[in-house]
Design a protein around this nucleic acid. Structure first.
Lengths: 207, 207
DNA sequence: CTCATATTGACCTATTAGGTAAATAGGCAT
DNA sequence: ATGCCTATTTACCTAATAGGTCAATATGAG
């Protein structure tokens, strides 16, 4: 059904894709405008509808497509054998940052899709909900080895605090990506800075 | 100019106020709808315009009004003599939580107002910008006593990590407030839980 | 030159935008 | 009851925008 879209030259395809993700992520399904998406994609509206045939179908297609990407390029790449929480967070955040460089709005889009109340798409979304957990926390941070934590700490609270701290750093970086679309950041520098904070966390929470 | 609005019976006034803050906070100035605000306030649109005379003026009035509230009930109440970062964060977060109970969207609204690009209100906003710092961090967490930190820690990084961690907890709570408008939360329980996390931070970062 | 495909300007109808005019509802003094 | 003032609403205005389509053009391959 979306064969026309999928066989597009990749640059135009990703222009349309990211424009749509951005508009839907920022405004939600109902308030998002196809005019805006077309304009930001750099094509005319009729051409866009030549590719995607309706706003609703486009949204649902994007949902499936993004879950697919997230599966392949994010969830499946998290090494669940790694039981060290700092290392695990390092992995997930770096994966996230890499993915955001290619699809700056993918996480926001999925969040909006999962929590939307729009009557138009709600039913179709629950039908196809492949269990996108609202709380990533349990699934990816449930089986963590806490034996390295300093013994006087409450391990559950410590896990949460580390999680929030790293999340704070990540959010700050991701925010920068979304505003300045000069997508060529100094990835190495970010990684170094990030590792600095992670080491600090190890020094603080570990024996 | 807004005397009619200000002399309203307080229940109706706060209904309109919070409805407007919510709509503007969620959609920004341009995309916010006066129809939605009126409907959510429980009054007709002409009556609303009887009180506020235009969308733009209403928005600017709200900006001034909220800055005033924030000054009186937030910034001015932060005890700058308290040099302990955990205690300082405790204060600011509890103040924030209290304020959010009364005005669930006030912080989001101010953020939206400060960062908006709307041609209609941008100029008027910069004219009256009474220095709403984008980064609260420097002003309220610049002169912190770090002598109690464990000596092997990088104090700047440690401060940031504590800040992010507490912010993570606060965001989680505030999110709950905004979704469930059954505004009667168990404030005591939250405070106890919060203090639990803060103590954990002290145990971890302090000598 | 032809045919098919890519692409667009102009247009459709329905809805919503911000805002108002004029009529009504309601309380209060006479 | 009467008149008067304010609170409040119904019905409406024009302009813009919504999602979407049609018919015409631009473009490239054979």
């Amino acid at each position: 059904m979306f064969s026309k879209f999928l066989s597009l030259e990749s640059q135009r395809q990703s222009a349309i894709l990211n424009a749509a993700l951005k508009e839907f992520a920022k405004k939600g399904f109902d308030d998002a405008s196809t005019n805006v998406i077309a304009k930001e994609s750099g094509i005319s509206k009729p051409l866009m509808f030549h590719y995607v045939n309706s706003k609703k179908d486009f949204f649902l297609f994007l949902y499936d497509y993004c879950l697919d990407i997230l599966g392949r390029e994010y969830f499946d790449r998290i090494d669940l054998n790694e039981k060290d929480i700092v290392e695990r967070l390092r992995q997930t955040c770096l994966l996230k940052i890499q993915l955001i460089q290619k699809y700056p709005w993918i996480f926001d889009f999925i969040r909006v899709a999962v929590f939307t109340d729009s009557e138009v798409v709600k039913d179709d979304l629950v039908k196809r909900r492949k269990m996108v957990e609202a709380s990533i926390f349990e699934r990816f941070y449930g089986d963590i080895d806490t034996s390295c934590f300093r013994s006087e700490l409450d391990t559950e609270k410590a896990k949460q605090l580390i999680f929030w701290a790293v999340g704070g750093y990540a959010d700050q970086i991701l925010e920068q990506f979304k505003s300045s679309d000069v997508s060529e950041f100094d990835f190495e520098k970010i990684r170094t800075e990030f590792d600095g904070y992670l080491n600090e966390l190890r020094k603080t929470y570990y024996k």
